[in-house]
Amino acid sequence: MKTFPHLVACEHCDSVYERTPLALGQLARCERCDAILYRASRLDVDRWLALTVAAAIVFVMANVCPVIYISFKGLHNEATLWASAAALAHGPAAPIAVPTAMSIIIVPFLQISLLGWVLMYARFGKRAPGFERAMRMLVALRPWSMVEVCLLGILVAVIKLSGFLQVAPGAGIWATALLMILLTLIANRDIHWLWEITEPARSAEEVQA
């Protein structure tokens, strides 16, 4: 099948354009529907990978450290992200715990690990084993990553509870805030150009032929 890597089709209205190189920070918009076609990346692969490693560290902190401490009449309690998702698993609304855990823990984890895997090889212009699958998963995962919503949820919970008990932020809340910023930087960007800067590994059939 013939392919045309020099062309780009708008995902929103199907208009076809020729790709032109962009200056740093520029973006190409569709003439017809005004959607973003592609943008010039401000990050090279090394910086991207560095931010991904940072996100991984912050992710661990956000999951290990409690996000909120409360005390009430001499009793204390704390909650982590995991505990929050698990709290939904008790009672009649139990099934909702699964998408909740997915959106605040599992999806961000997969995004960070898949990006790390792909970028580690992309540094050397190579495609990681399972590159195709990883790239497709990264595209599919993006809408389900909800760390920013989680952070707002934690803040609303703090205000809700501060009415009748004492509430203090834990280290986890700062880690979650950082994770939100780092995830936006690493995962909400145009990953298409990774296809262009990496060489396809020769498949078994090609080697035989």
Binding site: V67, N77, E78, G153
Partner: peptide, 15 residues
């Protein structure tokens, strides 16, 4: 999804 997450955090804490 905000409301779901608020309920999750609050339910995890107040026990």
């Amino acid at each position: 999804m905000l409301d779901v997450l608020v309920v999750a955090v609050v339910a995890a804490l107040v026990k």
